[in-house]
Simulated scan of single mutants.
Amino acid sequence: MKKWLRERVEGIDRVTKIRAEASTRAFYRLEFKNETRVAMVYPGPEPDAIERIQHFTHLYLNHGIPVPRIYAVLEDRALLQQDLGDQRLQTVFTRGRMAERRYRLSRVADILEKLARIPPEVTLATLDPDRMHWEMDFFIQHFASRLMGLADSRRLQARLVGLVETIDFAPGFAHRDFHCRNMMVHDGRIVLVDFQDSLRAPRAYDAVSFAWDAYMNLGKLRKLFLTDLEKRGLLPGMDQVYLTALQRNLKALGTFGFQVHSRGNKSYNRYVARTLRHVATNPLARDMLEDSLPKLTG
């Protein structure tokens, strides 16, 4: 692939592969004499995927939401993009002092406010009840079934049908994977990445994805963050917030189970305990999951 890139991009001094998790795409940093770029490369031609990324890049930038700029498309297989460096919000937030953390939370809320202004009609893709039911079945198959027997798994599956049916599906526009590992800190600003799967989703979806992030714990700052979002008019009632958060966390556990046991990607094990704590401390978890909850969370 390095040779492929050198043959199509002039003036490259050095090509370095960038580590990426849970993606079929590969990423490379291209070093030139006075600048760097990042090449995002698909295994083969993906014109629809490339077009989707171009579409959402323009959409986000037009709404004042920082995302990496696109400089070139290479044969419907790769994009040459702005290099944002290596600083994820996950690291900046975790290592920052309290004042720095509060500042970053406010900037995340600013981005959510801008996302809320995007009309959901700009995309046909929808996180609807059918898709959420599929995610809960995926969670049962790849995570819960490893912790409980068949009968218990079936009882939990029935309860998850009830969970999905209680979520209000009045849609808003959503990034879909709005968490700290998809936020880079570049020139002091938070820049979103991995936004190609943006869709219509329950109104609180992106907010709960960050408030109960599988990759970082807000701790006591979660209440401050949610209060800020409430004041901005970005949240539905708190019952809907907790229900959506519960579904999102269970969906994440299904993904982690699949990555660890089906893909052999053991690095996702480190995120399971935190996500289970999110589930265990969700105020509506016991009502929705009943006696399945202790079997999941220990």
Rank of each mutant, 00 (worst) to 15 (best):
I140D: 03
W134D: 06
H175I: 03
F138V: 06
M40F: 08
D239G: 07
D228N: 12
D128A: 07
R8G: 00
P171Y: 07
F27L: 10
G85I: 04
G96Y: 09
L246Q: 11
F178K: 12
L199C: 15
R270A: 15
I65L: 05
L289A: 06
H55G: 06
V279H: 02
F210K: 09
P129E: 06
R88E: 13
V73F: 00
I167A: 03
Q87H: 13
L156Y: 07
R104I: 12
A72Q: 11
T123K: 05
L284M: 12
K223Y: 12
T16E: 15
N182R: 00
D228W: 11
R181H: 04
G64T: 06
V41S: 01
L59V: 07
K33M: 11
V73L: 04
F178S: 11
L284V: 15
L221P: 05
R77Q: 09
T275A: 06
R176N: 04
R263P: 01
A125M: 10
L284G: 05
Q90A: 11
H55K: 15
I53M: 12
L243Y: 11
K2N: 04
D128G: 05
D83T: 00
D206G: 07
Y42D: 12
Y71R: 04
N269T: 04
V185H: 01
D137P: 03
F138T: 08
F139T: 04
G219L: 14
T255Q: 08
V260C: 00
F93T: 06
G162K: 13
D13V: 02
L192N: 02
D206F: 09
N217L: 12
A245G: 13
E46N: 09
G237D: 15
R102G: 14
L218S: 09
Q247S: 10
A201P: 06
R95Q: 14
S209D: 00
R222S: 05
K266G: 11
N217V: 10
S153H: 09
D83Y: 03
S209Q: 00
L74V: 10
R155F: 09
Y268C: 05
F173R: 03
E10A: 13
A245T: 05
N249T: 09
